[in-house]
C-alpha cells in the first residue's frame, strides 16, 4: 500500500470514528495540524483515535509519552506511525 493510499484510509477512519459530519477526506490536509488548530480535534478525539489505531492496526500508544504528541501532529506523521508499527 502506498503512503497516499494509507493516508486516505486514515482520513476516512478519522471522519468515521470521530463522526465529523461536515468534513470530507479532501478537507484534511496532510501537513495541517489535526488537533486544536487545523482540523480542530480535541483531547477526547485523541483518546478515540488512539482506540481506533489499537483496534484497526494493533498499535498501542503510551498516553503520557511526548512521542504520541508527535505521532498525532498531522496526517503525515500519523501515517508514518501506522506504517512503522502496524501489527495488522
Amino acid at each position: 500500500m502506498t503512503t497516499t493510499a494509507l493516508e486516505h484510509e486514515l482520513k476516512e477512519m478519522i471522519i468515521e470514528t470521530l463522526e465529523l459530519e461536515d468534513v470530507t477526506p479532501d478537507d484534511i490536509d496532510r501537513d495541517e495540524p489535526l488537533f486544536v488548530e487545523g482540523l480542530g480535534l480535541d483531547s477526547i478525539d485523541a483518546l478515540e483515535l488512539g482506540l481506533a489505531l489499537q483496534k484497526r492496526y494493533g498499535i498501542t500508544l503510551e498516553s503520557e509519552a511526548e512521542s504520541s504528541r508527535q505521532h498525532f501532529a498531522n496526517l503525515k506523521s500519523l501515517a508514518a506511525l501506522v506504517e512503522s508499527r502496524r501489527q495488522k
Partner: peptide, 9 residues
Amino acid sequence: EPLSPARFG
C-alpha cells in the same frame, strides 16, 4: 470491548 471515550463522555 474497549470503551469509546467520546460515547462515555
